[in-house]
């Protein structure tokens, strides 16, 4: 297991009292897989990721993470005053790990993913989809083993979103990373993930777990997945799961 969460609980304390956000959450990410966490908004998905990245501590339970974590956010958070390359370098800069090999690796990533010509441009000169790709490469530059994707496509328009999720899926697979994708978008999560955990409303707990098995000829990508015969079946299944909480 790359990541294993056991009996995880998290409460926040406000002036009104205790707010239970996570209750007995059990999750596991296997090597070579993409795990999806689907839940209604406000169900504590971000809290889960914040615990995994050690930004906050759980109230109780165990967190086992075997590997270095890279975090990709909803928005790209590129710094406007830095060039694309300097934006990508920021993680290494902070960790004081700028070596010739690291720079070489960044150059390779820039070339492979079509950003080489833009390396000296500024973020505002790039489209939303490209900016998101830069954000992913910024995360990859520090060489994480596991990627946490926090609704990374939700700030994009629908068409870009389909293309960027295809893009980013390929990058993750090509670089051989494991990933957790957090989202409330049912079709997106089916098209990208191998396993899906559905969270309940607050206090969140894992209500259901599905292995996604799609009949696909050739290589799997999110766009191809959407055309698989089982896609609609999973969509209906997850839709019903979420609907229960909407009531």
């Amino acid at each position: 297991m790359v990541i294993e969460l056991k009996n995880l609980n998290k409460s926040f304390y406000t002036d009104e009292g205790e707010l239970k956000v996570l209750q007995n959450v059990n999750l596991a990410l296997e090597h070579g897989k993409i795990l999806g966490v689907l839940g209604p908004s406000g169900s504590g998905k971000s809290t889960l990721l914040n615990i995994l990245t050690n930004l906050i501590k759980p109230t109780s339970g165990t967190v086992e993470v075997n590997g270095k974590i890279g975090y990709m956010f909803q928005k790209d958070h590129l710094l406007e005053w830095r060039t694309i390359k300097d934006n990508i370098m920021i993680g290494l800069e902070i960790q004081k790990k700028i070596t010739p090999q690291a720079v070489e690796k960044i150059d390779r990533l820039l070339k492979t993913y079509g950003l080489w010509e833009f390396r000296n441009r500024y973020p505002r000169e790039l489209s939303g989809g490209m900016r998101q790709r830069v954000a992913l490469i910024r995360t990859l530059a520090t060489d994480p083993d596991i990627l946490l994707l926090d609704e990374p496509f939700s700030a994009l328009d629908y068409q870009t979103r389909l293309l960027v999720s295809d893009d980013i899926y390929k990058i993750i697979k090509q670089e051989g990373k494991d990933a957790i994708l957090v989202s409330h978008d049912i079709s997106e999560i089916i098209s990208v993930c191998d396993t899906i955990c559905v969270l309940s409303k607050r206090p969140a707990t894992v209500k259901a777990k599905y292995e996604i098995e799609l009949t696909i000829e050739g290589e799997r990508t999110p766009l191809v997945s959407r055309n698989a015969p089982e896609f609609k079946y999973y969509f209906d299944l997850l839709w019903k799961e979420l609907e229960m909480y909407a009531q």
Partner: peptide
């Protein structure tokens, strides 16, 4: 300064001083 940008730097393990010199000051020139 946008809280999420601070979080982005923190996810790379940035210290308070690094957050100051790499984000807070340059974004406020």
């Amino acid at each position: 300064v946008e809280e999420d940008k601070v979080k982005m730097l923190k996810s790379f393990g940035a210290t308070k001083l690094q957050i100051l010199t790499k984000l807070i000051l340059p974004s406020n020139i």
